[in-house]
Write a protein that binds this DNA or RNA. Structure first.
Lengths: 229, 229
DNA sequence: TGTATTGGATACGCCACCGTATCCGATACG
DNA sequence: CGTATCGGATACGGTGGCGTATCCAATACA
């Protein structure tokens, strides 16, 4: 299961509603608008970067996959790096969205903890493609301090927006954290990361019996205490 | 603190004692032996790959840093990929060595758990350079299934050789695992990885107050039970 | 001391990719 | 209905880096 820039079924860019620009709300045909092309380029970049790595990916392949030429690209982004930063921004939002809805769903499950483990594990951002992309973006921040700042900001924003959901979930389960929320989040994130990576490398993605599923209850138990209210 | 292939003070390769090869112990001038050049190339590759990424690194820079030309390189490795695999192999051994000695030291500490957290955290393989290198090698395995197999084998071997030390350490602390040893190892590794990454990105490496130090006792408590023997 | 073998350096061809400068078509506007 | 503007395509020069083919030096060996 090599990660390849899947041959692109059509010119459809399934996910991500186009950021509104100009007069919107009217169902225009995919207008030749600046922001629309940016989105398509970003979509393409996500796939190609995931497969080949940022350094290994050529601007050309990104454009090709997006259905444009390099001319269009350089008309939208000054450089490849700029594309990377833009992508980093976008991915954070996508991740947050998916996390929160998945968590919301899981809470209605008879076994909330187990449901969390499995549902989060199956999230797109934890699939092979997106895992590679996220890992690489992180790696870039580790290497390049000029990216570290935006990276930290992005994470901070993610945290601030996600923590409420975590609290909510714990409250619903009648649990209270016994460690700092940031630490809990980091630890759980690390667990999922390791779990997803192991599954990918093992070749059986979405394995229902994964590290996260086994360890989440244990870790959660260690980091929380039942609350009597 | 950008990760740069430090300007190389001289032609010395400071870290990493040279793996003995041929008649060693006598202080010969760096003999012109095949395996010695391989080692120097590998040393150089570790640094350059860490700084620029595998794809971003040129064979030329690796050679330059090792003090050779590309001719020498291609006489020792068929391709850049081959170099990567060789490096992957070597790093695993180095990590294991350092881990075991660090753990050994920590066990003599009055506070074994705290000492573990701090000593492991300060290990070279967890420094910025090596973290980036290891993260990238992992990422390559995620992307390329032909690397996934060697990667799994490497990890398996690492596990098999490390688990005894873990058991030993736990025994010394009169503890017994309540979860599968593999899971425990994966979880702890994930914790350290996240901790190290956070410190690097935050810009304060070797921070004595890190995620691992805070959470290791908690996790350890969750995964073990005191043993009465 | 002369010859063979091994390790490394030099030099070359080649291709991918980048970034820009210029050109073309379509929509917006008066 | 003509004209300006905007988005994208084409075309081009330039560079970096890969892999190889050939040449040179030193050691091993006889």
């Amino acid at each position: 299961m090599t990660i390849t820039p899947t041959p692109q079924t059509s010119l459809g860019h399934p996910v991500q509603a186009p950021r509104s620009n100009g007069p919107v709300g009217t169902g225009e045909p995919p207008k030749r608008s600046r922001s629309a092309t940016r989105e398509r380029l970003l979509d393409a970049a996500a796939v190609v970067f995931a497969a080949r790595g940022v350094a290994g990916a050529s601007v050309e392949e990104v454009c090709e996959r997006a259905g444009f030429t390099r001319g269009a690209f350089y008309s939208n982004f000054a450089t490849k790096d700029e594309l990377v930063v833009a992508l980093l921004d976008r991915e954070e939002g996508a991740l947050l969205d998916q996390l929160t809805t998945a968590l919301g769903d899981a809470l209605t499950d008879p076994d909330p903890v187990g449901a969390c483990a499995q549902r989060l594990f199956e999230l797109q951002p934890f699939g092979a493609h997106n895992y590679a992309l996220r890992a690489e973006l992180t790696l870039l921040a580790v290497r390049d301090p000029s990216l570290a700042a935006p990276y930290r900001a992005t994470r901070r924003s993610f945290r601030d927006r996600f923590l409420p959901f975590l609290s909510e979930g714990l409250a619903a389960a009648r649990l209270e954290l016994t460690v700092p929320a940031d630490d809990a989040l980091d630890t759980l994130e690390a667990l999922f990361e390791a779990s997803v990576r192991a599954s990918i490398v093992a070749g059986d993605p979405n394995a229902p019996d994964n590290l996260a599923a086994r360890m989440l209850p244990v870790l959660l138990g260690a980091m929380t205490t039942p609350r009597c209210d």
